[in-house]
């Protein structure tokens, strides 16, 4: 049923995808979203609560019909070919509930019966998947007795029951302990690397997306603010807010360095901090600063960029939007 999509081709694509709610369509949940995810990528979708992450995901798997625009997942139209999309994808929604009166095996068997999978393959796949997510020993336990971490991992197993090419994971590590979260992240990485599964995940954890995602999309108030690798996003923020350096100079007093650097156009601000100089500059100002210090007769003993973690990058982007 899957359409042939080669590596580096877009497996998820949206053009001006829009969703409005309300009687007069007055609430814009997703606003003209243009997004593309390549086959095999792990794509992280981050944004504050109510940003439009889940609504976007709902539209991509055909649970919500867009108000405007279009989209394709695995080569299928998100409005006209919903069932084909669901056959080609796996989803771990949030919240996710299972049939707690049934065992893990019985639950997976039920989901598997919704696909064209013969009995022998089905039973083997159930065992394999539960082994993959570390729930082999709980195969005949009722899911009602599972811990939150076990439920998340079980959710991943149910999302993989049809061997999907694309996985949609809505906050896959929310509510679970750090060990469980790491286990889940390792699983996602393994699926991407070993099985070539494309992963589209939403998360609140910046550390998580930084660790596992190839590219990140930042969404706020339904608008896509930026898309790129962690470094590309950092550069975007740097361009807007500048780069902060810590500078230590020998042979020159701090005040003299500050006065000298203040004259440079590329330096936005400069101040003394604990015996060294902290300065905010434009992108690509490093060389100019080094030369100026040299001209003043100073010897640079430390010239380090204060790297922004993704959390700050994210906050800066949201701030910029506001």
């Amino acid at each position: 049923m899957n359409k042939e999509i080669s590596q580096n081709e877009n497996i998820i694509e949206t053009i001006n995808l829009t969703k409005r709610f309300g009687k007069k369509n007055e609430v814009v949940a997703v606003d003209s979203l243009n997004l593309s995810v390549k086959k095999g990528e792990v794509f992280g979708f981050v944004g504050p609560n109510g940003a439009g992450k889940t609504t976007t995901m709902k539209m991509l798997i055909g649970l919500l019909e867009p108000t405007g625009g279009s989209g394709k997942v695995a080569g299928f139209d998100i409005v006209r070919e919903v069932i084909k999309i669901r056959e080609a994808t796996g989803v771990l929604p949030e919240p996710a509930g299972y049939y707690d009166n049934l065992t893990a095996r019985q639950n997976l068997r039920f989901y598997a019966k919704l696909y064209d999978i013969d009995e022998k393959t089905r039973e083997k796949r159930i065992v394999d998947l539960l082994e993959l997510v570390g729930l082999s020993r709980a195969i005949d336990q009722r899911t009602g007795g599972f811990s939150t971490g076990m439920r998340k991992r079980f959710g991943l197993a149910q999302a993989l029951i049809n061997e999907p090419g694309v996985l949609f994971l809505d906050e896959p590590t929310s509510g679970i302990d750090p060990l469980g979260a790491q286990m889940m992240r390792d699983l996602i990485k393994k699926l991407s690397k070993e099985k070539g599964v494309t992963v589209f995940l939403s998360s609140h954890s910046m550390a998580e997306v930084e660790e596992i995602c190839d590219r990140i999309g930042v969404i706020s108030r339904g608008k896509l603010l930026a898309v790129g690798t962690v470094e590309e996003l950092r550069d975007k923020v740097r361009e807007k807010v500048g780069i902060r350096y810590a500078l230590e100079v020998q042979n020159l007093p701090v005040q003299r360095v500050i006065e000298g650097l203040k004259r440079l156009k590329c330096v936005r601000s400069v101040e003394p901090v604990n015996g060294h100089v902290s300065l905010l500059t434009d992108l690509g100002a490093r060389m100019e600063i080094a030369m100026e210090v040299n001209l003043m007769g100073g010897v640079i003993s430390r010239f380090e960029e204060e790297r922004m973690d993704l959390q700050r990058v994210f906050l800066k982007l949201i701030e910029e939007m506001a």
Binding site: R86, P93, P95, G97, Y98, Y99, D100, N162
Partner: peptide
């Protein structure tokens, strides 16, 4: 019950209308 438990959420992500 299915809607409240979230199992309907999961079921509808599989190929069923």
């Amino acid at each position: 019950k299915e809607r409240k438990s979230g199992s309907l959420n999961v079921l509808l992500t599989h190929p069923v209308y």
